[in-house]
Amino acid sequence: ADHSIDSGLSLNESAKIRMELINRVYQQQIVNFYSEIKKIVWAYFDKLKNHNREDGAGVAFICRNYIDGNLEKKLTLHEIAEKGNVSKQTLNPIFKKRYGVTVKQYVNNKKIELVKKMLADNKKNLQEISNYLSFVDKSYFVKIFHSITGVTPKKYRHELFDKK
């Protein structure tokens, strides 16, 4: 049930399925418990599969997980779309519907979240951070950081350590 919710099924829909299945189990004398459990699990998967087909949540979820696990790479929309087994043109609307941002915005936001942590660690300079996260170059990295946070990475780091 938790996985179905994490994958995009509404809380109400998941709870409804859960109650239907629990009632079915209690109303029957179960001869083969494992067989019944298997039916319950497959009922969730069928419902989730149909839901994901309808709104693309499964594709968005797969692509988001791929992005989250590969932030240090230079991620392209083509590569991400391939992981979701869809075209580039199909992915962005699905992703935006599910997460409220385009794929590129999501990638940049996640990278900047990581940059903030790296700046707080104060172990790498800006060039090393830019290289590690596969930004085109340091100036592009600074531009993206500034557009998302409103300050430069250097100022962000200084503000962190001036507070301490």
Rank of each mutant, 00 (worst) to 15 (best):
Y34R: 12
N92I: 02
G100P: 05
D121Q: 13
K83M: 06
S147G: 07
H3Y: 14
N109H: 11
I112D: 06
I30K: 09
I37H: 09
Y156E: 05
L48M: 12
N12I: 09
H146P: 02
V25P: 04
N50P: 02
G150K: 06
R18C: 11
N125M: 04
E159M: 11
Q28M: 13
K39T: 12
R53I: 09
L75G: 00
E72C: 11
S134N: 12
I94F: 12
V31L: 14
D162R: 08
F95H: 01
I144A: 04
R157K: 14
N23F: 07
V86L: 06
G56Y: 06
K163S: 14
F95P: 00
V136T: 14
K155P: 02
N52S: 11
Y132R: 07
K96A: 05
Y140C: 09
R98Y: 03
R24I: 08
E13K: 15
L71Y: 05
E54F: 05
I17T: 04
T152D: 07
R64Y: 08
M118P: 02
P153Y: 03
I148F: 06
D137H: 11
F135M: 05
L119Y: 08
N32C: 10
K38N: 14
A81W: 00
D2A: 13
M118I: 12
T90D: 02
K97C: 07
S139Q: 13
V59L: 05
E82H: 02
A81Y: 00
I5D: 08
K16M: 13
L75Q: 01
F145Q: 04
K104G: 02
D2F: 07
D68S: 00
N70T: 03
D137S: 11
V115N: 05
A120P: 02
G69S: 15
A60P: 03
E113Y: 07
N52P: 00
F45K: 15
D68Y: 00
N122C: 06
F45Q: 12
D55I: 05
L9T: 01
L119R: 04
T90R: 08
K117W: 03
